[in-house]
Computed example of a mutant assay.
Amino acid sequence: MAIDLTGKVALVTGASGGIGRAIAVALASSGAKVILNYLNSREAAEEAAASIRDSGGEAVAIQADVSKAEEAERLVGEAESAFGRSVDLLINNAGHLVQRIPNEEMTEELYERIMDVNLKSAVFVAKAVIPGMKAAGGGSIVNMTSVAAHNGGGPGASIYAASKAAVLSYTKGLAKELAASGIRVNAISPGFIGNTAFHATFTSAAAREATIQSIPLQREGTPEDVAGVALFLVSDLSAYLTGETIEVNGGMFMR
Rank of each mutant, 00 (worst) to 15 (best):
I3Q: 05
V12M: 11
T13Q: 10
T13V: 06
A15G: 06
G17E: 14
A24Y: 07
L27F: 14
K33R: 12
L36C: 10
N37K: 08
N37H: 11
Y38I: 06
L39H: 07
A44S: 15
S51F: 08
G56R: 12
G57V: 11
A59S: 15
A61N: 03
S67H: 06
A69C: 01
A69P: 14
A69K: 15
V76N: 00
V76T: 00
A79Y: 13
E80K: 03
S81Q: 15
F83C: 07
F83G: 08
S86K: 05
L90H: 11
L90T: 04
A94K: 13
R100H: 01
E104C: 01
E105M: 05
K120M: 01
V123S: 00
A126P: 00
K127R: 12
G138K: 07
G138T: 01
M144A: 02
M144H: 02
M144R: 01
V147M: 08
G152I: 13
G152N: 05
G154S: 15
G154I: 12
P155D: 09
G156C: 12
I159Y: 08
A161H: 10
A161F: 00
A161R: 04
K164W: 08
V167L: 07
L174Q: 04
L174R: 01
A179M: 03
A180P: 06
A180C: 03
R184N: 13
A187Q: 02
I188F: 07
I193T: 03
N195E: 14
A200F: 06
T201R: 15
T201K: 15
F202Y: 14
T203R: 14
A205N: 13
E209A: 13
T211G: 12
Q213C: 04
L217V: 14
P223V: 09
E224T: 08
G228E: 09
L233V: 02
S235K: 12
E244D: 04
I246K: 03
G250D: 01
G250P: 04
G250Y: 03
G251P: 10
M252G: 05
F253M: 03
M254T: 13
R255C: 04
